[in-house]
């Protein structure tokens, strides 16, 4: 297998890892605002992802960096084409990241409420936009022969792309709700569980629609539908841990389906011959070799310490034992 394909797969893995992990913390970011009746309850929900959200977000940064290093033409065309959605995504990520830190530094009810509201809005926007961006990869965007975007903002928010946004939003909400059922105790957990029943059904429905609309042949696409449906069953049978994993795998699987569908293209152009492929968008063999060595050494190490950090914070939390004092 050539290194171009290895890196195409690795970038898919990074995106999948990002959705697998950040999916639930986007979800929690939204849900805390609706589940938590007061600032302490919302704080409890937020604390459940406190130690992890930043590490999860690095998966996105690394996916971007890997695209730059391994497929500079893909990175350049995709990021400049999605200029406005990415600006909004960045604003949302900035707001989100800062809210985590300032909300427990603010000593009063009101600023904390504003932080929680901002966290909800920014997490929702980010969830939507990730879906929109990825769906644009699948349906293609108008780019010219030198890889420059020729369309307008409205070419990026076609109904199908927006549908992608709703898909990711519903998936992240489900994922977040299930994460909370695993991390939180007592009444706060019950609220999350009750919500997850509805949202998992909604997600299953949306995935069924997506499967019919988008991927007629793809096995992986069917697999994500199977995963989300089994998650629905598992939620009702109260096998929540397995359900959570199924939903997270479903996010990852959707990314796999997307990348599988566009291969060997990396960026589909609506003018077919201008599409960027793994071959014409890639870096030189030398650069790919260097990057492969670095990734082979460091990705396993990263996985070990990230998993360890989840292990350290495995204890359930409730408003009583929540400790955010640094």
């Amino acid at each position: 297998m050539s290194l171009e394909i290895v890196w195409f797969v690795l970038i898919a893995v990074l995106w999948a890892g990002f959705l697998f992990l950040e999916g639930f913390d986007f979800g929690v970011g939204i849900l805390q605002f609706f589940f938590g009746k007061n600032e302490r309850e919302r704080g409890t929900y937020i604390t459940s992802i406190g130690p992890h959200w930043d590490g999860n977000e690095v998966w996105l940064i690394t996916a971007g960096g890997a695209m730059f290093a391994a497929f500079p033409f893909w990175y350049a065309s995709f990021f400049s084409a999605l200029y406005l959605p990415l600006v909004i995504l960045l604003l949302a990520l900035i707001t989100r990241g800062v809210c985590f830190e300032i909300r427990h530094r603010a000593n009063f009810e009101k600023p904390r409420f504003i932080c929680d509201a901002a966290l909800m809005v920014s997490s929702s926007l980010a969830s939507l936009l990730i879906g929109v961006a990825l769906m644009n990869l699948a349906i293609g965007i108008p780019i010219d022969v030198s890889g420059n975007f020729t369309g307008t903002f409205f070419d990026l928010v076609k109904p199908l792309a927006l549908f992608g946004g709703i898909l990711s939003l519903s998936l992240f909400l489900t994922n977040g709700a299930l994460f909370l059922t695993l991390k939180i105790e007592g009444e706060l957990q019950t609220r999350a569980y009750n919500f997850s029943k509805y949202s998992v059904i909604a997600s299953t429905f949306l995935f069924a629609v997506a499967t019919v609309l988008l991927c007629k042949y793809s096995v992986i696409c069917i697999a994500s539908l199977v995963l989300i449906s089994s998650a629905a069953v598992l939620v009702f049978k109260q096998h929540l841990k397995t359900a959570f994993i199924c939903v997270a795998l479903c996010s990852a699987c959707s990314v796999a389906a997307l990348f599988y569908a566009i291969f060997p293209n990396v960026l589909v152009s609506s003018i077919a011959e201008n599409s960027l492929t793994v071959w014409n968008a890639a870096s030189s063999a030398y650069t790919l070799k260097i990057m492969s060595i670095v990734a082979a050494v460091f990705v396993p190490i990263i996985l070990v310490y990230q998993i360890w950090s989840y292990y350290i914070f495995r204890k359930r939390i409730s408003p009583r034992n929540v400790n955010i004092e640094v």
Partner: peptide, 19 residues
């Protein structure tokens, strides 16, 4: 410059940001 310049950025993410 992506062939040269992208590598250190990606390595920065892998080596530094995660840690």
């Amino acid at each position: 410059v992506g062939d040269v310049f992208g590598a250190p950025l990606a390595i920065e993410a892998l080596l530094a940001f995660f840690m």
